[in-house]
Amino acid sequence: VKVFRALYTFEPRTPDELYFEEGDIIYITDMSDTNWWKGTSKGRTGLIPSNYVAEQ
């Protein structure tokens, strides 16, 4: 598990995607895809765009 911080707010387009706000901490559990990672924030899990976060 790696810890990342959201650089921007992300509004999901599908139920599989995770909503998060700029500054949120996201725990990444799967980075197997280059563009979409699986992450958890505020008790919810979903896909996030990798270019919206920076490693802490």
Rank of each mutant, 00 (worst) to 15 (best):
D16V: 08
S50A: 14
T40G: 06
F10S: 14
T9V: 04
D16P: 04
Y19E: 10
D16R: 08
Y19T: 05
E22Q: 13
D24N: 03
E22W: 06
T29E: 10
T29C: 13
V3F: 08
F4Y: 14
T14W: 13
E21N: 08
L18I: 07
E55Y: 12
T29H: 14
V1P: 11
P12Q: 03
A54R: 12
E22M: 13
N35R: 13
L7S: 04
L18R: 00
G43V: 01
Y52S: 09
M31S: 08
T45C: 10
Y27Q: 07
Y27N: 06
W37D: 01
I28Q: 01
Y19A: 15
Y52R: 04
G43F: 04
D16F: 12
Y27F: 14
L47P: 01
D24S: 05
F4D: 00
M31F: 10
T9W: 04
F10Q: 05
Y27W: 11
P49K: 06
S32I: 10
R13T: 14
D33V: 06
K2H: 11
I25W: 09
A6V: 03
E17I: 03
S32A: 09
I48P: 02
L47N: 06
I26G: 00
G39R: 00
T45R: 07
P15N: 10
M31R: 08
N35S: 11
P12E: 01
K42S: 12
D16L: 13
Q56D: 14
Y27H: 08
T29W: 15
T45Y: 14
T45M: 08
N51L: 09
Y52K: 06
K38N: 07
P49S: 05
R5G: 03
Y19L: 05
R44E: 06
K42H: 12
Q56T: 15
I26E: 00
V53T: 02
D24V: 03
D24A: 07
K2D: 03
D30H: 06
R44D: 05
K2G: 09
E11P: 03
I48T: 02
M31E: 04
E22Y: 09
T9Y: 05
E21T: 07
T14E: 10
P12A: 11
K2L: 12
G46V: 01
A6Y: 04
Q56S: 14
N51M: 11
P15K: 11
G23W: 05
G43W: 04
